[in-house]
Amino acid sequence: MTRQRKFTAALAALGALVTLVILLFPLYAVIVGSLETNNQLLGTHYNFLPPTPKFSNYSAVISSQGGHIVSTLIIGVFTALLVLAIAVPAAHALARYRFRVTAMLVGGLLIAQILPAIVIANSLFLIYHKLHLLNSYPGLILADASYGVPFSILVLRAFMLGLPNDVLQAARVDGASEWRTFVRVVLPMSRSAVITVAVFAFLNGWGDFIFALTLLSGSSFQPITLSVYSYIGEFTSNIGEALALCVIGILPAAMLLIAAQRYIAAGLTVGSVKG
């Protein structure tokens, strides 16, 4: 039995290894490509290892795209902050209190989660045009939050429904105001769910392309997804730099997966995440 079990384990490990190699090959290929020159990348042969690994693509892309990388960070961070500011109090109210509209609101959020971003983007373009919100950080961040707000409220509410009621009751009886109960009791107890939601909201803002494409045109700032998009037009001339920018674009996801793996797995399991 144990021998058979060992054999199964070895077979499973081998299977996992093969799957991972296939599944993660695209990422390996971008990293290798980002270390090659344009001539090496556009030759007649694909190189599985960089012939002469150099970081010159990175220095080139950081000098030409450095500002855009900072912009992308700003967009990601403020998207996360905005989503938290909207979603955390709302989730608390929907979990703790009974409103006549609670069921309607929760149902509305479920539907909002389903709505395609492109539909919203097309309308927002025309609405922003009139409100003079095109080509602005606030306009873009407001739009990017739409990926995360419904998901975050639903996830946080589900989490908060599980908090022990007597603790909150006690705080209230003790004379703490609604707001104080929320800040001093609910928030600290919901920390892990808040982190989960913040991580995904940041990645939504960092990786957004639809809203940047539709709501920015010729603005002074842009996220790197738009930069990568403009590299597509000149695919052959700057592919090394484009690949280096792709690696920079996937870094936050990789780093957050290492740093906050527990929260990411939790967010995935609780439900839908992507716009």
């Binding site: 799957t19 991972l20 599944l23 993660l24 695209p26 990422l27 290929a29 971008v30 990645l203 960092w206 990786g207 957004d208 392309f209 997804t225 990568v228 998009y229 590299y231 597509i232 484009a242 792709c246 674009g249 996937i250 996801a253 990789a254 957050l256 997966l257 990411i264 797995a265 995935l268 995440v273 992507k274």
Partner: peptide
């Protein structure tokens, strides 16, 4: 295995 899910979709397209 989670990584592909977290990447910016446009960048995945480019890759």
């Amino acid at each position: 295995v989670i990584i592909p899910w977290l990447l910016p979709l446009l960048i995945t397209g480019f890759i």
